[in-house]
Structures are given as structure tokens and as C-alpha cells.
Write a protein that binds this DNA or RNA. Structure first.
Lengths: 201, 201
DNA sequence: TGCCACATACCGACTGGTTAGTCTGTGGAG
DNA sequence: CTCCACAGACTAACCAGTCGGTATGTGGCA
């Protein structure tokens, strides 16, 4: 009935690889990659080292998986918004707000993402940077489209605008606390609004 | 003639504590706090562990010193701009641009600042957060002043605006490379411009 | 002027503790 | 009987911090 990796005690728990990934995410976000021992991860996931090294090649691999998950999710969502059938202003606003909401909903991923690049092997870093660049370029294309159409100011180069906005997204994990004064959606609306206001011709 | 700590070989080198701080800054920025061994720091500074532990209580202390240096510098500069005799828009623009230039000029400090909070002891973290909050509040006060005066839009709460701007400052160490297309001053002008444009009523 | 007492500024071998990754073993499903 | 999915003891490496020692300078006193 249950898949081979999905049995442990009575209740229906997640399969082991997912449990490991979830435990690692929580711990990496909480105390940082280097401060988290493999032993702590496997204990939090309720397994042992044997299980971890059965599914992952190294501690580093675990981190890489987390990066992959974030990048895939965000790229997918951006693509959807960018391809929508609406005026550029609307598409940009939606995309800008969505990345804020998604980031807040996965704050652990976000704090790992921006703090732990260096702990990845050089090769994996290169891969992550390449995917990140694709994302960045897609976003920039939206801004350039609006600039060419004359609905956005051309006072600032588009890639600087992208960095400006993603700086604030990046920063969310530093100050946003769940249950704060503003809901994720409200924060997203405000930040998207600031972006669009800055781009008014 | 030379102070006791200022003699080593023929040439006039910096005193040992500064050399250690400089070496630690470079290494922490480069490979992260946890990935940098005390041995590497002392080797880079041309001394031994004995010297380091003569001047600093712990590796953690070294990091704390770096934080202190950054915070003091930025607070000083912000205070100067905020107290200047000029219209709010001007004071805010100057302060916003200055923090960008100063951050770029000390990019190593910046990447350490935003990546290594967690490696500080809980107590030192609290101290740093308190100083950071003071800085933040000073900046926010500028925005609120402009909002009350009617020269800035009140569409977005002032503290969100502060986080928006400092997100982009924070982010600089991720993308800015010395010798890039834009000079630090140009980047600063653009980012300050984006802020002021977003605040137009 | 000479000498002693003490301090400051380091040196570098050593220790105790931790950690990523390995490897051999085992229980249950097919 | 075999193989998958994991268990858990073990190892080799590393590292922060300690500590006893040395060299150089300095102030007081005879």
C-alpha cells in the first residue's frame, strides 16, 4: 500500500529523502550550513547516516537540492506571469509581487539561498549562478519591454532595477517575521508598488 | 621612534591588531567565517596564534570587531547627512547614495555583515541588532519627515521603504564587482534616484 | 652608569573535541 | 536466495583555544 520508503511507525510519514531535505532546510536556515552537523540532520529526520548517504552523495548535495528546488519553483512562476496575456505593467507587477509572496512562504529557503552560496562546491555554484542568471534575464526582459513601449522610465538601466528589486526580496528573510503586522500579500503589494512607482516615466 | 607594535622587518607595516583584522576581513568575506581557520588568519597576517589571542579574546571577537567598525562608520555618516542643512529630499538622497558608495568601498565588510550574523554569540548578536536598529530608525525618521511635509508619498509605510532600500544595499555584495560597467558613484546615484522616484507623491 | 624586576608582545607545540564520510552488517520483501 | 534500504560503529582530518616559554623594552634604584 505504502511505497517502500514510506513506512515508519504507524502514521503516514513522508518518504525518507523528503524528510531529510525538510530537516536539512529547517536546520540550515536556523543555524547555517556549517554549523549543522550531518548527525543533527539525520536525527531530526528520524533516520541515521546510512540513510542519508544512501540517497545523497554528500552534505553538499543536500544543499544543492535545496537550491534546485527554489530555482525551479521561482523560474516556473516567473515564466507563467511573464507569458500571461496582459499589459507589461500588469505582468511586471504580478511577477514582482508573486516572488515576494513565494519567498515569504518559503523563508527558510530564502535565508539559505542568500547565505550559503559559498558552501557549495565551485562547480555547483557555477550551475546555480547560471540558473539564477536566466531568471534575472527573464525579469529584466520584462522591464526592457516596458521601457521600449514607453510605459517605464529609462532613467535607470534595466538590470540595475532588477537588482534593486531582488535586493528587497533577498532582504525579506532578514526582517520579515511570520505573524507580523503585514500579511505576505500586503508586503508583496507594497514592494511591487514601490517598484512600479520607481519606474513611472 | 616606532610604537611597540609597529616594527617588523624593515618596511613600515601596520600594527599587528590591524593586520589581523584586515586579514580576517578578507578571508571571512572570501570563504566565510566558519570556513576560515584561525591558523589561516594568522598566516595571512604574518604572525602566530599567540599574537591573535594576545589581542583578541576569541575568533568570535574578531568578527565582532568587524561588525563594530562597519556600524560605527555608517552611523556616523548617516548622522552627518541627516543633520545637514538642506531640504529633506536632498538629505535623504545624499544619505541613501552615501551608504551605497561606502558599502561598495568596503564590499568585504558588507558581505561579512549580511552573511555572518549567525556566527556571532547570541549576546553579541543582540548588541549588533540594537545598533542596527538605531541606524534603521534614523533613516526611517528622514522618510517620515518628508512624508509629513508632503514631499514624499505616504502610500507605503516608512519602515517598509527603509527595508526596500537597504535590501538593495545588502544585495550589492552579491552582484557589484569592482571595475564593473558603473562606478560606485553612478550606482549610488541610480539607486538613490530609484528610491526618490518611488517616493514621489 | 649598571643592574634588577617586571611587563608587554609575541611564538608554536599540544590537547580535547568535533565532524564528514566509510564500511560492514542486517532485516524484510519478492 | 538476493537485493534494497537502511543501521551504526569507526576513522582520519581538522580546528579553537591553551600554555609554557622567549625576547625586547622600561622604570626604579644604588
Amino acid at each position: 500500500m505504502t511505497s517502500p520508503a514510506t513506512r515508519r511507525q504507524g502514521s503516514t510519514t513522508q518518504p525518507v529523502p523528503q524528510r531529510l531535505l525538510a530537516a536539512a532546510t529547517r536546520l540550515f536556515a536556523d543555524r547555517g550550513y556549517d554549523r549543522t552537523s550531518v548527525q543533527e540532520i539525520v536525527e531530526a529526520a528520524g533516520v541515521t547516516k546510512g540513510a542519508l548517504y544512501h540517497y545523497f552523495g554528500s552534505k553538499d548535495d543536500l544543499l544543492h537540492e535545496i537550491y534546485g528546488r527554489v530555482l525551479r519553483l521561482q523560474q516556473e512562476r516567473l515564466d507563467a506571469f511573464a507569458e500571461a496575456d496582459a499589459p507589461v505593467e500588469q505582468r511586471l507587477r504580478d511577477a514582482a509581487a508573486d516572488v515576494v509572496v513565494t519567498t515569504i512562504e518559503n523563508l527558510d529557503d530564502a535565508s539559505i539561498f542568500f547565505r550559503s552560496m559559498h558552501q557549495l562546491s565551485e562547480e555547483k555554484q557555477k550551475q546555480v549562478r547560471a540558473e539564477r542568471r536566466r531568471y534575472h534575464e527573464r525579469f529584466r526582459a520584462l522591464i526592457e519591454e516596458g521601457q521600449k513601449a514607453g510605459v517605464f522610465s529609462t532613467a535607470t538601466p534595466a538590470d540595475l532595477v532588477v537588482d534593486y528589486h531582488f535586493g528587497s526580496v533577498h532582504h525579506l528573510s532578514t526582517w520579515y517575521r511570520p505573524g507580523g503586522r503585514l500579511t505576505p500579500q500586503q508586503v508583496a503589494d507594497h514592494l511591487a508598488d514601490l517598484l512600479l512607482r520607481a519606474l513611472r516615466p
